[in-house]
């Protein structure tokens, strides 16, 4: 039990420190790496409370895919420059008070949620779905999502699909003059339109129309 507590505090310390480093570090790429460290330690915490499916999905989705895209954006665009300007011109910019306001509101919301949860006498009665402890949490999650909440699940999938199509439509542009490979054209070429035999007259050559 002591080992469990020690490991828990190690992971949560890493999570908190790296979350602070995300906002404090001046190099944007380092911020993203700290964000990844944060994701990893939080998924370790998930695994420690027995939610191994959530922990693994967190690793696969956030670290394996989302953070890679973050890194791409940060490395390709020169976000570092912009962030440095923000840091240097702290007198004029107004994002620090706004950020503070948002974080204070979130902090109070969390206090209200945790307080309400802590002082509710019959917490277990208020849970709508009964908990079956025999199943692994992958099975029970699947049972809940794909039977009780199937419509909401499908709906959220549709929202993601719409967002994806929107992003593609916004960024798609047809460029002219780009040579593309068409497998069909390549395969359906035959000898007749591929090769032409020409008798070349002396000192005249052949005119090839491009």
């Amino acid at each position: 039990m002591i080992a469990h507590a020690i490991i828990f505090y190690i992971f949560s310390l890493i999570a908190i420190v790296s979350a602070i480093m995300v906002t404090v570090s001046k190099n944007t790429v380092n911020s993203v790496f700290f964000l990844i460290l944060d994701f990893i330690s939080i998924s370790c915490l998930f695994i420690m409370i027995g939610a191994e499916f959530l922990g693994m999905i967190m690793l696969i989705v956030y670290v394996g895919a989302v953070a890679v895209l973050f890194l791409f954006v940060v490395m390709m665009l020169n976000v570092a420059q912009q962030k440095n300007e923000w840091f240097n011109s702290s007198g004029r910019s107004s994002h620090i008070p706004v950020g503070l306001l948002v974080s204070i509101i979130i902090f109070f919301e969390l206090i209200i949620v945790i307080g309400g949860w802590k002082y509710k006498p019959d917490l277990l009665d208020s849970i709508a779905i009964e908990i079956n402890t025999d199943l692994t949490n992958t099975q029970s999650l699947g049972g809940v999502i794909y039977t009780d909440y199937i419509h909401l699940f499908q709906l959220s999938g549709m929202v993601l699909l719409v967002a994806m199509i929107g992003a593609i439509v916004l960024t798609f542009r047809q460029r002219s003059g780009v040579k593309r490979q068409s497998y069909f054209k390549q395969i359906s070429r035959d000898r007749k339109d591929g090769i032409e035999l020409v008798d070349v007259e002396n000192n005249k050559g052949v005119k090839i129309d491009a």
Binding site: E52, F53, M56, L59, I60, V63, G64, T136, N137, T138
Partner: peptide, 9 residues
Amino acid sequence: NVGILYLFA
């Protein structure tokens, strides 16, 4: 329990 997900992750 989630061995294959671990490998994938």
